[in-house]
């Protein structure tokens, strides 16, 4: 029987769909994080890619998450990425650029987004993820 494995980004455990070996890339099916499989003394765990450029890491995560949920971006994507990179630089992780609390639940994609705020409001709080493709000029 396959065991569940913990995503170190969203802290949700999920079942791997296929066998992975040490060093293989895994995409979290909950938050879209790009992760690396590690096998230590026969115990396996996932970690964030230690050598990946931060911008590549967050871009891939948000693209994966949007694909998983069929969400869309608009022209604010790049300014929001800049905000996320500034948060990482100053506070150590990709915390939502529009929230003040630097806690796990605000790591992008934040908990309220993963819990369905885009379905309810049409977009996430900071306007990164959209339910529908934004019309021209919509911010």
């Amino acid at each position: 029987m396959r065991e569940k494995i913990l995503c170190p980004v969203c802290q949700v455990s999920f079942l791997l769909r296929e066998e992975k070996k040490d060093g293989d890339e895994v995409i979290c099916p909950v938050c879209g994080a790009v992760l690396i499989m590690r096998m230590d003394e026969e115990k396996r765990h996932l970690e964030r890619p230690p050598d990946m450029d931060p911008e590549e890491e967050i871009r891939r995560r948000m693209d994966n998450f949007a694909k998983l949920r069929t969400y869309h971006f608009n022209q604010m994507k790049n300014p929001l990425i800049e905000g996320l990179l500034a948060k990482r630089e100053r506070f150590g992780d990709f915390y939502c650029p529009c929230k003040i609390d630097h806690v796990q639940e605000n790591v992008c994609p934040c908990l309220e987004t993963r819990m369905g705020s885009v379905e309810q409001n049409g977009k996430c709080h900071c306007g990164l993820f959209w339910k529908e493709p934004p019309k021209n000029g919509e911010k």
């Binding site: 300014p79 800049e82 905000g83 500034a86 650029p97 529009c98 306007g127 911010k139």
Partner: peptide, 28 residues
Amino acid sequence: ALSTCPFCRMAKGYFDKRDIEYEGIDVD
């Protein structure tokens, strides 16, 4: 506002462009 938030910058821009006086606080 937060210094990292692009929509906060747009809000500042809205008032600046129209010469509307406001108190802007970058809370972070």
